[in-house]
Simulated scan of single mutants.
Amino acid sequence: MSVVETGDGAVVTGRWTKVRVERVADLGLPWDGDRPKLPEGVSPAEAPQAAIERLAGADRFAEAVTLLAFALPKREAVWWACLASRFDLDEETPPAVLACLEAAEAWVYKPVEERRQACYRAVDATRPHSPAALTALAAAWSGGSLVPPEAADTVPAVPPEESLTARTVANAIVLAAVTRDPAGAPDRFRRFLAQGRNIAEGGTGAMEGSAPGAKP
């Protein structure tokens, strides 16, 4: 175990073996002029784990979620969004929204081109305003082309911008935390961040009430 100083006290966490960079500056965040666009008070030279834990400890949850979405590899990040999206489901969830989540989960289990394109098709059948639909988009934008699968062969491929998956994962998780019960958002954020930490450590992120813990 390692101890990370958060500014609000020491937090004991496992080693984040899935995070491959040593500095926040190297996470691939969008740029603001000549430097990465960072949360206030976060140094480009800071270790991602330390920055995320400090933000979470200060209840700056959306910023912590965003940094962790960029810190995780795309497949693990989409799995994290799958867990948050599944926690957001209820008995009134439309079948088309559930299909988005199932398509994203299928891509995580086997991230091949056919399943990436299936995520596009799932989102096309519903409005992309739910955590599940955003999660499917995050998988669809993980590689390949932004051009829909049904487009004519003469349409040139358009590779997705590298940060699209991370940005969309962060949006999905924030939406899953705040939409249904704004007053309960802090508890949801803490739950989702606990799952994200576990995934960063190499775990499945599974918790009570989440999807089955098939390791991505």
Rank of each mutant, 00 (worst) to 15 (best):
C100H: 07
A69W: 00
K110W: 03
P48V: 05
P44R: 13
G41N: 05
R23Y: 10
A69Q: 00
Y109H: 13
L98V: 12
G41Y: 01
E40P: 00
E102R: 13
V108C: 14
F61V: 08
A96Y: 07
E105Q: 10
R23Q: 15
C82S: 13
V108Q: 02
T93F: 14
K110N: 11
V24A: 08
A99W: 10
K37Y: 10
A84I: 05
P111H: 09
F61N: 10
I52M: 11
P48L: 08
R75W: 01
D26G: 14
D32V: 09
A47T: 12
A58S: 06
L67N: 09
A106R: 13
D90H: 09
R86C: 01
P73Q: 08
A58T: 01
D59L: 10
A96F: 04
A81P: 00
W107V: 08
A58P: 00
C82Y: 04
P94M: 01
R60L: 07
R60A: 05
A45G: 15
E102A: 10
R60M: 04
A25Y: 06
A81H: 01
K37F: 09
L83M: 06
V42Y: 09
A104Q: 07
S43F: 08
F87S: 12
F87K: 14
K74N: 11
W79E: 13
E92F: 11
G57D: 07
W31Y: 13
T93M: 12
I52P: 02
A84L: 04
V78W: 01
G28S: 13
A47W: 07
